[in-house]
Amino acid sequence: MDHSLNVLDEALRLDNATMSFCPGQVVLIEDCVETSGAFVLHHMIKRALSPNSSGVVLFVAFAQPFSHYERILRKLSCNLVTYRENGRFFLFDMLKLDYPDGDVGNTVHDRVFDLYGKIQKALEVISVSPDYNKSCITIMIDDLSLMEVAANGASNNVLDFLHYCHTLTSELGCSLVVLNHEDIYSDLMGPTLILQMEYLADVVIKVEPLATGLATDVHGQLTVINKGVIDEPGILRTRVRNLHFKVKENSVECFYPGSRS
């Protein structure tokens, strides 16, 4: 399993030793209705918490409860309960937060601000722990469209939140991983949240169904776009990798197109 996933790791340009991102990177996962990109997020949680690194994950969950992630990650041989107890996995369960209507003073802006406050507080807790390594903190958001829903459609507030998370990437070297759905913006003309995200992102991962239609052996394709990659000395380019994947019971198999018969 690990060997097959290395193709994805290589496309994501993860560090060989620590299995983590280069510090300060912003990763955007774009999926669509036909093909869910959640498995990429799960894979990244696993890599961020890999035993080789002392990485910490701050997970902002709008989509699923903790038990869901815990169950899936256990199948990928990664025990989230243990990591949570060791202070390496923080989950902000946004599903449980309900804002009573009587709470007049609590605007969308305040809610987004509160969430940022919680993240910053968690960062302070992490920074005083003895085995703190600032380059390995990953903030993950699942998913941005639901955050927009929670913010009553005020995408500007969501962008403010993302901007503040982005300042953490440059100040503390955190990585930011965001899942969003591409097709819900497809009909909208003009500026969209996903376009703003694409400007912000260093790595864009698009998860799509196969262009040629349904197949039993291939469940979809990944397009990994790495901006600003230095392949050869002095040459800076955007690197594009195209991968096919097959979602299995306990794992996801990634391979280059045509390498499986």
Binding site: E208, A211, T223, T238, V240, N242
Partner: peptide
């Protein structure tokens, strides 16, 4: 936008 068939285009405009 975002069509994988544009891969070649993406490569061409990459730098």
């Amino acid at each position: 936008r975002g069509n994988s068939e544009c891969l070649v285009l993406l490569e061409q405009n990459s730098r």
